[in-house]
Design a protein around this nucleic acid. Structure first.
Length: 598
RNA sequence: GGACCGAUAGUAUAACGGAUAGUACAGCAGGCUUCGAACCUGUUAAUGGGGGUUCGAUUCCCUCUCGGUCCGCCA
């Protein structure tokens, strides 16, 4: 048996073919018209896994569950099924080794190559993921959420890169996605920053005003820490006065707020442009502020919220979530209240069915409270809210904080990256145009920082170590980009020599190294789905890295342009092209664009 | 005091409950008159302690230890 329409929805074509053959063999040994439940094609497909080592086979079927279903010994099932499968004569089954209860199935490299390489080159493989079956709710990914008037540092980059990559991955899996920002443009930190500027009559520079504001904020924090107890009441009154003046929406302080707020936004935009992140819409705290007051009134009246100790909130102590303050004693709403107002907008104004919040793990409790509150308020979408929590980016000397000022700012990061990468690209000066060197530097810089930021599991803290991330060896962005550039170079030579690829015989791609590459190319679609379902771009990073290792090994063992025969040479050129196309696509989902040469 | 998260070689990372715990950096030993050695090959080295569930546990449950984060008027 070969292709059957019943397996069209399974993304891994070769695995689906093997699953179909297994099912056929099973029905044969059972002599049944219908298989018992639990042995449908999808279930068998799900049972097939990769053996621990490539040499052992392409797919392994652990026979424990089937044996349980049939009430027989796993080894016996493996042996008998193996015989039936061999007799079945599927072109997708090369041979079968049984190892106790495991049935290891070898797929012929030729079948893999002939099906896979053309599907990659004409783009149809990528499309398989996009036209996936199943519900595709409208997704909103909220990320970055920087505070204005504070420094934007490397810690914030992790969020940008994580959120942006996740959006690209969701789109690749066929979801309608909306990317949004939510800036913190009101509250105590603004008052502190402006207070310091006004108090000390500070003058802004002509460039990099956003970064200057960050320094003003740090100075303000230091100055406020030094305030004596006697002066505290007076200073607090000054800060409150600034907040009131901003709230009044007129006067010199309000104008200063508006002007400085825009400086921060301009800085953010530069950063997003540099990193390749984009937003479909920007929200701000100041715009949902009034709405958050209305929400408190509305749900206080409905009896959902309660008065307590002069404040208004929601008691979630029974659920070990404490008491959520929604309106403070002074009458102002809190961060949580604004998140409620924002969520309501997401649901009603933008018809969002699944809301993802990319926010650091410090906010774990906050989002549990917000989602639970939305639920109590009666929003059914509350159940589809997801907080993608991620660990801190710590410097070699511990946590970075804009309060303390021990941070690496964005501009500093960019300079250090350029410096680090210059030692690799400077040798091309004079040889390449300055524009190409500049372009390659930018691609390498963003690729380096992006890969470093997302290659480990979001839940883990990461230590920011630029030298390691910019290394060309190991699991780094530059290594992957080099693997691309290197293979592209071979393809350029093939093209320049005017090779006709019409004589290519893909069935000749049968070396172990080439088969290994084919397997990684074959698995890419499933890995993208897995990255999407687990909300972990890191899954994709690991796969792409291993794919590059496999390709480098293959290039070392199997010469492309110096292949023994013309049909083999052409086949290897096509494989190399399939590799570069797949890698380029995979990297694009991480927001990384590799240079054509480096 | 309470809640949540984490702990895998010197360092960094991986493993739908499945086979001999995979990989990288560093280390050690090798391979270039190269389709790009920014590469490849070989090698040393790890599941924090103790229980439990299971045919089978790095994975699930309990407990202890260590580390991090958060916990009613910051955002």
């Amino acid at each position: 048996m070969t292709y059957s329409p019943a397996i069209d929805h399974l993304h891994d074509h070769s695995k689906a073919q093997v699953a179909a053959a297994v099912q056929h063999a099973l029905s044969g040994i059972l002599s049944l018209a219908e298989l018992p439940s639990g042995l449908e094609i999808d279930k068998i497909y799900g049972m097939l896994e990769r053996p621990p080592e490539a040499a052992m086979g392409d797919y392994a079927l652990p026979c424990f569950r089937i044996a349980k279903e049939l009430k027989r010994k796993p080894q016996d099932v493996a042996d008998e099924l193996s015989k039936a499968l061999t007799a079945g004569g599927s072109p997708w089954i090369e041979k079968i080794d049984t190892a106790g209860p495991f049935m290891n199935i070898h797929v012929p490299a030729s079948a893999l190559a002939q099906n896979l390489v053309p599907a990659i080159l004409d783009g149809s493989l990528i499309e398989r993921n996009k036209r996936a079956t199943g519900p595709r709710p409208k997704v909103m990914i909220e990320y970055s959420q920087p505070n204005t008037h504070k420094s934007f540092h490397v810690g914030h980059m992790r969020n940008v890169v994580l959120g942006d990559s996740l959006g690209r991955i969701y789109k690749a899996c066929g979801y309608p996605v909306m990317m949004v920002n939510y800036i913190g443009d009101e509250g105590a930190h603004i008052a502190k920053c402006l207070w310091y500027i006004l108090k000390n009559n500070q003058k802004a520079p002509d460039t990099q005003m956003g970064e200057w504001l960050g320094r003003m904020y740090s100075s303000a924090s230091a100055a406020l820490d030094a305030v004596t107890d006697d002066d505290k009441i007076k200073v607090n009154e000054e800060l409150s006065q600034i907040l009131r003046e901003i709230e009044s929406k007129q006067g010199p302080t309000f104008d200063l707020w508006k002007k400085t707020r825009q400086w921060s936004i301009n800085e953010f935009n530069e950063i997003y442009a540099w990193s390749g992140a984009h937003f479909d819409h920007w929200f701000s705290e100041s715009e949902v502020s009034e709405e958050s007051q209305e929400i408190v009134d509305e749900y206080l009246e409905k009896g959902v919220f309660v008065n307590s100790e002069g404040a208004v909130g929601l008691d979630l102590k029974d659920e070990k979530l404490g008491f959520v303050i929604l309106r403070k004693r002074d009458g102002n709403t809190t961060y949580a209240t604004k998140d409620l107002a924002l969520a309501r907008r997401k649901f009603s104004q933008f018809n969002i069915e699944k809301a993802i919040y990319v926010v650091a793990s410090e906010q774990n409790l906050h989002f549990k409270q917000v989602f639970r509150t939305l639920d109590k308020m009666g929003f059914p979408q509350a159940k589809s809210c997801y907080h993608l929590s991620y660990g801190m980016v710590v410097g070699p000397d511990g946590k970075m904080s804009s309060r303390a000022g021990n941070i690496i700012t964005f501009n500093e990061l960019r300079e250090r990256l350029d410096l680090e990468l210059a030692k690799y690209l400077d040798k091309y000066r004079g040889d390449w145009s300055d524009a190409e060197i500049k372009d390659a530097t930018h691609k390498l810089a963003t690729g380096t920082i992006r890969y470093g930021m997302v290659c480990s599991d979001p839940v883990k803290d990461i230590v920011f170590h630029l030298k390691d991330w910019a290394d060309f060896e190991g699991n780094t962005g530059p290594y992957l980009m080099y693997a691309y550039a290197r293979t592209r170079s071979i393809l350029r030579k093939a093209k320049d020599s005017g090779l006709s690829l019409k004589d290519a015989n893909l069935a000749l791609l049968s070396s172990p190294e080439e088969k290994d590459v084919l397997r990684y190319l074959n698995d890419l679609n499933n890995v993208i789905i897995q990255a999407c379902e687990s909300n972990k771009p890191s899954v994709l990073c690991h796969h792409l890295f291993n794919m590059c290792k496999a390709n480098n090994r293959s290039l070392a063992a199997n010469p492309v342009l110096k292949a023994e025969t013309a049909p083999l040479r052409s086949a290897r050129v096509l494989l190399a092209e399939a590799f570069t196309e797949s890698l380029k696509y995979g990297l694009s989902l991480l927001g990384i664009e590799p240079p054509e040469r480096m």
